[in-house]
Amino acid sequence: MKLFLLFVIGMSILLEATLFPFPLTLVTILIFAVSGIEETALIALLGGLLLDFFSMRYIGVSSIYFLATLFLLTRYSKKVQFQNKFFQLLYLFGATVFYSFLFYKSLHVLYFIEVIVIGSVFLFTLKYVLKRFGRERRLSL
């Protein structure tokens, strides 16, 4: 399972840095987080560093964003029903749109649709895989 997660995050970083100006890595990390994967914070730190190195940004800037997003998620998960798929998608949408605006200066209607579609497909696929292999847990706080 760890290999699978590493493969998913690795591919996200490579595709985002090489081909698509789309926050694939952020989407992946947030989905890991809402799926209750314990190592998400470490993955966010290392994934962000790697993404910055590959994208020729200042190293650490993506990690800070990823971790800040995770921090908000954990901070408010008690107040908001984050196990609800609607809230998960809403948070994913907000975080990716803001990230896209910051890093890719992209705010386009088509883009929003892409975020929703890719996010939903990714979320449900990963949830299914995790459930099947018995790794899904609730958020630990």
Binding site: A33, A44, L45, F71, T74
Partner: peptide
């Protein structure tokens, strides 16, 4: 995920960002 762990990681990320911002990481990046 523990908030303290996230704080610690944010600290690390900020430290690395500062190092890169002031060009100290060039010796590793190049």
């Amino acid at each position: 995920m523990h908030a303290t762990r996230i704080h610690f990681y944010i600290g690390i990320a900020l430290f690395i960002f500062a190092l890169d911002f002031f060009g100290i990481l060039v010796f590793v990046k190049d």
